[in-house]
């Protein structure tokens, strides 16, 4: 199997889907001539031409609306947000339009569109450029929300997203673009709603998605080496649909769980996971389920403050020890 970066895996998925289906086209800021702010779309303008790799002005509502409109007549646009912090400008198009069109018109018009780009922070991007906010999208009926953590998942899930007939919020992570991993070649797709156990373990279930999966895996290695604690790391991969079966199966085995995400703790996606665990596996729990997440503050610039705001391996280790105490 080829070893690719997360970025290359995404590009491979886009390329393969554009070759497979002439209805797939890309639009977004700096994706063509500039080759993509994070180079995900590098070379695609040269390969597919400007009709299919559409550079846009800085007009997020316009980009989102244009993608939705094209999808309404059967094209399969993949719109890039330079970061998901900028998707907030297009919130009306995502929430009031993309998510509602199928339902409010009685199921007659599907919106097969993908909105993708990096979410999250961690590179001193400060208050306005560090958002994840996946819980906002997962909150909206009609949207699917996907959060790959590895190159293989990035490829398999993006191909599935492009083939999906519903609007998909596909959240990448800037800190993952250069990470490497084995990626199956060719027509590799991963169905939504299938969490994956990234590391088996017997003592505590760590539930994560996107970049914090790597954080959880590192914390799990350290706990295994230093304390002999074996954590099971469950990568949700998609938040809507959400595979609670895999989570509950793990919790029923370990009886203890910690949810890890980079979004703020307050009303974050972890709250939903915890609520469902206590609802369906209350009697299996030996300790309260804890959440490791970003501090409920605007993300600060200063390196030390930013580091303190984001969840860390140490935070995970402390939480694991606490549920075992």
């Amino acid at each position: 199997m080829a070893v690719l970066t997360y970025r290359e895996a995404l590009r491979q998925a886009l390329t393969e889907e554009m070759e497979r289906d002439p209805n797939v086209f890309l639009l977004g800021e700096e994706i063509g001539r500039y080759q993509g702010t994070f180079r995900v779309t590098e070379g695609l303008l040269q390969r597919f031409g400007e009709m299919r790799v559409v550079d846009t002005p800085i007009s997020e509502s316009g980009i989102a609306g244009m993608a939705i409109g094209a999808a309404m007549i059967g094209l399969r646009p993949v719109a890039e947000f330079m970061t998901f912090s900028f998707a907030l400008i297009a919130a009306d198009q995502l929430v009031n339009h993309a998510a509602k069109i199928l339902y409010m018109f009685g199921g007659q018009m599907a919106v097969p569109v993908v909105f993708r780009g990096p979410a999250g922070g961690g590179a001193q991007l400060s208050a306005q450029h560090s958002h994840s906010l996946e819980s906002w999208y997962a909150h909206i009926p009609g949207l699917k929300v996907v959060t790959p953590a590895t190159p293989a998942d990035a490829k398999g899930l993006l191909k599935t997203a492009i083939r999906d007939d519903n609007p998909v919020i596909f959240m990448e992570h800037a800190k993952l673009y250069s990470t490497r991993g084995e990626v199956p070649e060719g027509d590799y797709t991963i169905p939504f709603g299938q969490a994956e156990i990234k590391r088996p373990g017997r003592d505590v279930t760590l539930i994560a998605y996107s970049q914090p999966v790597l954080l959880a895996l590192h914390a799990a290695e350290r706990l295994a080496e230093t304390e002999g604690i074996e954590c099971e790391v469950v990568d949700l991969r998609s938040l809507q649909p959400l595979d609670m079966e895999t989570v509950l199966r793990s919790v029923r085995k370990t009886h203890r769980a910690v949810v890890v995400h980079e979004d703020h703790r307050n009303v974050g996606f972890g709250a939903e996971v915890v609520a469902r665990i206590q609802e369906f596996a209350f009697d299996d729990l030996d300790a309260p389920v804890l959440r490791v997440a970003s501090a409920d503050v605007p993300i600060p610039y200063a390196r030390n403050l930013e580091r303190a705001a984001f969840p860390s391996e140490e935070d995970i280790i402390r939480a694991v020890k606490r549920v075992l105490a």
């Binding site: 009709m51 244009m66 939705i68 409109g69 094209a70 309404m72 094209l75 009031n96 007659q108 018009m109």
Partner: peptide, 30 residues
């Protein structure tokens, strides 16, 4: 709405359908 007649809907957010029309137009050109 009347998809068969190309009526792709009435929208409740003021101006919200204007970006959609650009996408429909782009799809026609495409």
């Amino acid at each position: 709405v009347d998809v068969e007649r190309g009526f792709l809907g009435g929208y409740g957010i003021v101006g919200g359908m204007v970006p959609l029309a650009v996408g429909v137009g782009y799809g026609i050109r495409y």
